[in-house]
Design a protein around this nucleic acid. Structure first.
Lengths: 108, 108
DNA sequence: GATGCACATGTAGAGAGTCTACCTATAGCG
DNA sequence: CGCTATAGGTAGACTCTCTACATGTGCATC
């Protein structure tokens, strides 16, 4: 998910605040099970996003377990919009380059 | 272009052998000018791909200038096919997760 | 004839991001 | 008592890409 993880996390949090573990599960669910990110990838990303002001986190205890719940900040919402625009641009560029060349003699 | 550069380079070379500078120009052309990769990104990538056996390179001199021309190997063609499959999978996963959630009460 | 741009290739080092592997702790079930 | 699911985290390695620098030719312009 090189470089696109931030957008995916922000996108999941657009539905409402969630804690880290739930974010991982939501990513799995939304991707139809294809996305099984290790905690060692997601937790540092969440802290990074919080440091960057795109998320705000707060501790709570639910059922005897500590949770850190993250909420999208206004900056986070803007960042999400930017990420979506970036993805749109990025994917169309990759498609354009990666698309197999039409065979010689065949008009595009 | 994190992680996708290799596929883009291989894709350009599918048209036929090219030297590094021409690869950079072809990437620009195919992307409609959006992709302006610095030489410090492309040249190391080419050497990496050659070391990995996906490209074979050979020197020649054209108009007093040294060129290293790269050709797709059989392994390179297989790698390209794999990259295209990866991209397809990857992009559909990102789309699925990044797509804005439908507003509550509105059926999907 | 000097200057600058397009052509052409490369290296060094920094920085970012993701992964593997590890660690801790609780709740609940068998 | 041990296992699994839940919940959070760190350390270190690794890979890739970027910036900046270095080198040199051919050709057009001043």
């Amino acid at each position: 998910m090189r470089g696109h993880l931030d957008g995916l996390i922000l996108s999941v949090l657009e539905d409402g605040p969630r804690h880290g573990y739930a974010i991982i599960e939501a990513l799995q669910a939304r991707s139809g099970g294809a996305l099984d990110l290790p905690t060692g990838t997601v937790y540092p990303a969440l802290r990074r996003l919080e440091r960057a002001g795109r998320l705000s986190g707060s501790w709570s205890t639910v059922g005897g377990r500590e949770r850190r719940t993250y909420t999208l900040t206004r900056a986070g919402r803007h960042a999400l919009a930017a990420q979506r625009a970036d993805w749109s641009e990025f994917s169309s560029v990759v498609e354009a380059v990666l698309r197999p060349p039409r065979p010689a003699g065949e008009p595009s």
